[in-house]
């Protein structure tokens, strides 16, 4: 092989490698299907998944080469959540826009990556999220598809909502630390910046949560609504601080206490 050909091959491989690395740290942990229709559930619910995009970031190389040990997923409870309508704060309740929010997620049992999992519930037993983790975890460089089902969402037919977006908070954990130990090396916090303990200055994932958007599809917009309203529901800092934890057999495993 000619020297020039070898050089070209090296260049090509380098480019592929750089591209792969870039993609591995630029992809975000998201829902597999982030936009769904209103209450169109089939066979029990809308089947979906949390896609864990990459591991934590090695400080020396700035590459996502640290394995993921588990993930925690929390949906807004809709009670003390922050609501915006067309980008403006809304002081009413979520019931003005959604008639049945409260138990939004069901985990599809799957031990293929993380062998342990359980729900995060409110005081009434409604399922607001889940955690899954343990075992050998997710090897850096690979993705995880964590299967879930979301409950059918019904938009208040009298409202002007043309869509309702729920901001979903996800923590991909690479090291068990307390909140003071959160860093790009220990956890990828795909959370909204709402003042909770699940954010830190300069994070790779700053204010980059996952979302689930429900488009109005059952009832037409009332004629008086014009173009309609885009509603966004974020969890409060209080809810995240309360719910975004791994508790097992009465002991909090993460964040470490």
């Amino acid at each position: 092989m000619k020297m020039s050909n070898r050089f070209n091959i090296v260049l090509l491989l380098t480019a592929i490698g750089l591209t792969a690395m870039y993609q591995s740290v630029s992809a975000h942990t998201r829902l597999k299907t982030p936009v769904i229709s209103e209450n169109n559930a089939t066979h029990g619910s809308d089947y979906n998944a949390v896609v864990v995009a990459h591991g934590c970031i090695d400080a020396a190389t700035n590459a996502a080469t640290i394995d993921t040990l588990g993930t925690v997923v929390v949906f807004p409870d809709g009670k003390d959540s922050t609501i915006t309508v067309n980008g403006q704060p809304y002081s009413g309740t979520l019931a003005d826009y959604v008639t049945n929010w409260g138990s939004p997620v069901t985990k599809v049992q799957d031990k293929s990556i993380f062998p342990y999992e359980d729900y995060i519930k409110d005081s009434l037993g409604n399922k607001l999220g889940f955690w899954t983790g343990g075992g050998k975890g997710l090897k850096a460089g690979f993705r995880a598809v964590v299967p879930i089902a979301t409950a059918g969402v019904i938009i208040n037919p009298e409202s002007c909502a043309k869509s309702v977006q729920f901001v979903v908070s996800i923590a991909d954990i690479c090291q068990i630390t307390d909140a003071a130990g959160f860093s790009d090396q220990s956890v990828m916090l795909w959370t909204p910046t709402v003042g909770s303990i699940y954010q830190f200055e300069g994070a790779h994932t700053t204010d980059s949560p996952a979302t689930l958007t429900v488009n109005r599809s059952i009832t037409p917009l009332p004629a008086s609504c014009g173009a309609g309203e885009e509603v966004v529901v974020k969890p409060s800092a209080n809810q995240l601080n309360r719910d975004m934890r791994i508790i097992y057999e009465g002991q909090q495993i993460w964040p470490k206490q």
Partner: peptide
């Protein structure tokens, strides 16, 4: 750290039944 995490999970025996 990974070991600790796994050990914590492996030591789990049964989920608390919520009645």
């Amino acid at each position: 750290m990974c070991k600790i995490y796994s050990k914590q999970f492996i030591s789990m025996t049964a989920f608390t039944t919520l009645v």
